[in-house]
Design a protein around this nucleic acid. Sequence first.
RNA 1: GGAGGGGUGGGCGAGUGGCUAAAACCGGCGGUCUGUAAAAUCGCUGCCCUGACGGGCUACGCAGGUUCGAAUCCUGCCCCCUCCA
Length: 426
Amino acid sequence: MSERDDDTGRELAGEPLREITTRGVIEIIPEDEFREALASGRKLRLKFGLDPSKPDLHIGHGVLLRKLRQFQELGHQVVLIIGDWTARIGDPSGQSATRPMLTAEDVRENAETYMRQFFHVVDRERTEVRWQSEWFDAFTLADVVRLAARFTVAQMLQREDFRTRFDAKKPLGVHELFYPLLQAYDSVAIDADVEFGGSDQLFNLLVGRELQTEVGQRPQSIFVMKLLVGTDGAQKMAKSMENTINFEDAPNEQYGKVMSLPDSALMEYLDLATDIPDEELDAIRSDLEAKSANPMDVKKRLASEIVAQFHGKPAAEEAAAEFQRVFQRHQTPQEMSEVSAADIKTYSVEQSEANAAPQYDLPHLLHDKGLVASVTEARRLIKQGAVQVIEGPGKGAVGGASAELGAGSVLKVGKHRFLRIVDSDA
RNA sequence: GGAGGGGUGGGCGAGUGGCUAAAACCGGCGGUCUGUAAAAUCGCUGCCCUGACGGGCUACGCAGGUUCGAAUCCUGCCCCCUCCA
């Protein structure tokens, strides 16, 4: 869907390259410089920085990581920078709660987790891992001042979130201004040729370019990448928005989250989160517009693609089957939490009639087994008719705070919380 | 250093002594309808006891105080913002 003339790309390396430089890419700054570098045949150093304070990678990051991977396949070198310094400073982002400084130990653990996820997508063999502490540990106050002196406050306030906070009279810590500076210095330290970032990172990326120029390095090119919307279909995917699909989510969870996407986000996900070729995407798009394809089927394809990326094809097929079973046919899932018949004895309720079926206290059972956040919530849900026994002894709607249960009973709470009572000797 | 404004539930934001577990809105959860999702619609949305009625306990930056009674008044402290120097 690029307005750009495709000829340049073709001349360089043909069709695949065109897709690499356009798919998910908003802008390459400056494009001609980048194409020159690419044409030179040099092995390019692709910078990617990570902040080890929040180790959950999600498929929004995936957009960038897959781009890195594509360049690796062309023979280029990824340089992964672990921001152990920027993470230790901590980013108060907005208001309140001065985030507790991470210890060196925390940072190391987080970095491990992060890398494990990172290399799900990016090729470890063609990645050089560098820690910020390699250069920042040696920094003196004089170095810091010299670095800071290269920029003005007005320049810093060009960054949108700084400016909005400043204009809105929200707190803006002085140390936060160092964020872009430290990150920029990373580019100098590793002699980056290209840096990738979401459109929200544009400012930081440009600072790196500027600093490199100042110290006489060839300035990096910048890939500004599109941001993926979250599962709410409205806001960008971000951990703080709780709208992420994580690399390490279980297959069923990833699949379910994709299926719960609003249809309006469908094409964007296909474009940014999968490697389905452009021509095929065009076909899907026109089928959807012509209503000759059912959005649900397209979404299932998307869900399978995504699960397969992280868990493999078989897992994707299982997740698809599970989704049909539980959500489309309203059958019982294959795996769910279980509790033994002996365990629930604790919850039995006194019966007035001696030979009545055994009754069990549901609110406490559900709470103790972690299906609900509080006993009160369980009571509410029961009152709202959200709790039922869908299999085995006591099968039927649950009206009160207790119900008949036995080995083989399956409790369902809301749409996707289940609990099975199993035989005691298991 | 001075003057002023402000810190309320997941978010935003009402509330100036009892009618306030705290409005409205958003978010979240649940029911119905759909039988991907969305939309629509109805309801719930601090914790604990209770079949229910009802009761108890915490909560409005922190710590004290006044009062029969405080998110609301007083004192001290912490933090944020604005203007002046």
